[in-house]
Each structure stands twice: as structure tokens, then as C-alpha cells.
Design a protein around this nucleic acid. Structure first.
Lengths: 149, 149
DNA sequence: CTACATGCAAACCCTTTGCAGGCTG
DNA sequence: CAGCCTGCAAAGGGTTTGCATGTAG
């Protein structure tokens, strides 16, 4: 359970934002939020569910999904949409950033590309669209899976 | 029904590729392929289905899906995975390229960004992954929907 | 105390699968 | 004429919804 000031600050900010927008804080909601903020693993709904159940065994999967929808709506987590419908969630960096997805073990990591932040502006100017968000995902085989053959 | 040489060439190439890889050509398969090559609208499976049924009313949706899978496997169409599960298909440019998706009317257009082709290499060098493909999608509101809005 | 949130189970919806019969090569 | 392809219908699987009950503010 990380205790850095950064984490605490982020938590408070998100909770405040949720309250401002008329959402209530429940233990389950708090648990989902904390798990997503603490994880760098880009967990799926099912994985969040299992994690939440460690502390709140009565929690239902429906609640997890409903909470994920709320957190998406307030823009504090992002959803990584996969081809098989098993989506993943990212609570670490709320603004869009590239992901690197292993086709073999399905692990997802963040990639740091040092200046694609202007891309949306370029696209907006070029097309007249109001750009709201974007996604940049790379698919491949991670080093570990390459070794294993 | 476009009749340019380019189109015909592309068609022949894909058909040849399919045959090489042990796939048979049926009227339905041909129809799906032609529709995807001719359209710049990034249609969904259902839309391809309706289109195919104009010429082959007996066609089933299952066949459309099976054909889409084959065409994906041989790498001649690409799938645009959307959050609601209603995927779209692109038969125009078989290699990955950016898409611009309107959150309002759900139209999808291609974007021409003049040099992101080296990105996969950059990511590969930076991470050790073998990059197989990538997707770059922008979400926003198209000019037409902004006016109406 | 009044809504909003939860939990359960059923519904959803796109996509996939199984199988008998048809058609390609 | 062997085996892939088709069409039909049913199953699949992640996600969403409806409703009675619980609880945050």
C-alpha cells in the first residue's frame, strides 16, 4: 500500500472531483479507485474485481463495471479497448499515452515517446475536427515471450 | 462499380494470395472483398452484410464474419476495434494508418500524417519488443457535427 | 430521509461455433 | 469427389440493465 504524498494527493483530487460532480463515495468505489491508481499493470474489470473482493467480499462485478464507467466519465481513468472485448484500465496517467501490448502474454506496458503531444493539434488543424482524445497502441511480442520461443 | 486498373490489380493480387494460402473463392467471398476494396467508409460487418445481400440475398451474417476473419488473417483488411464492440473494417490500405473517428456520427475517415512510419522502429529499439502492428486513432467531433451541434 | 449505490440475475449484442448440405478446385 | 464453404440456429462471453435493498450525505 503505497504511502507517497503524490498518491495521496491524486486520491484526494479524484475524490473531490467525484463529489463535485454529484457522485458519492462508497468503500467499493474507493477500493476500485485505489487499485487503479496503485497498479501499473493495466488490469481488466475481472482483475479489479478479484482485488476488490479481498477487502470487500460481497462486491459484485456489476458494481465494478458501474464504477469504471463513472471513473471514465470524470476522465480519471482510461480504457484500453482490445479486439476480444476484454478491456483494460489505466488509472496512472489520465491523459492519453501510448501502450505496448504483447500479443502473446497480453501484458500491457506504457511507452514513453518524447513528443507526440502535438499530434492532436496537427490533426485538428488538418481536418477541422475537435479532437477529444486519441489512442496509440503498438502490438508485438515482448522480450520475455521472444525468449520462450 | 469502379473499373480502374489499380482496383483490378489489387483484386487479382488478393485473390491470388487467398488461393496460394489454400482458400477457395466463392461469390460471397468475392463480394465481401470487393465491397471492402471499393469503400472508403470503413463499414461494419452488418453494413457489409447488407451490401452483399443486394447481390446474394441468401448470404448469412456468419459467412460475412468468417470471410472477414480470413481477410484479416491474410493481412488484406484491417479491423478498427471500437469501444462498443461494433468493429469496422478497412480494405483500402492494408498497412496500419491513423483513423479519425467522430464521437457523434461515428463516421471514420483516414488521416494522412506525413511521417509516423518510423514510430514502430523507435518503439522496438526502445523496448525490445518485436512490433507486429499498431493503431493510432483520434476521437473527436467532425466539422459537420460541430455545425449541427 | 432522499437519492444514489449496491448486488443479484437476467438481458444484451456482437461475434463465434456446430453441423448438415452445397460447391470449389 | 474430397474437403472447404455456406447458412441456419444456438451458444459464447464481456458488459449492461432492472429492481429491490442498502447507505452516503
Amino acid at each position: 500500500m503505497p504511502e507517497t504524498t503524490e498518491r495521496q494527493t491524486r486520491l484526494k483530487q479524484v475524490v473531490a472531483k467525484l463529489r463535485e460532480q454529484g457522485h458519492r463515495m462508497t468503500p467499493q468505489r474507493m477500493a476500485v479507485l485505489e487499485i487503479l491508481i496503485d497498479s501499473t499493470q493495466h488490469p481488466g474489470a475481472e482483475q479489479v474485481y478479484e482485488q476488490v473482493r479481498k477487502d470487500f467480499p460481497m462486491t459484485s462485478l456489476a458494481t465494478i463495471y458501474k464504477t469504471l464507467i463513472v471513473l471514465k466519465e470524470v476522465g480519471e481513468i482510461s480504457e484500453i479497448v482490445l479486439a476480444d472485448g476484454s478491456n483494460r484500465y489505466d488509472g496512472n496517467i489520465p491523459h492519453p499515452h501510448p501502450h505496448l501490448i504483447c500479443n502473446h502474454c497480453h501484458r500491457i506496458i506504457d511507452v514513453d515517446l518524447n513528443d507526440l503531444s502535438t499530434l492532436p493539434q496537427v490533426v485538428a488543424q488538418q481536418t477541422g475536427y475537435q479532437i477529444v482524445s486519441h489512442r496509440l497502441d503498438f502490438f508485438g511480442i515482448c522480450p520475455r515471450c521472444q525468449e520462450e520461443g
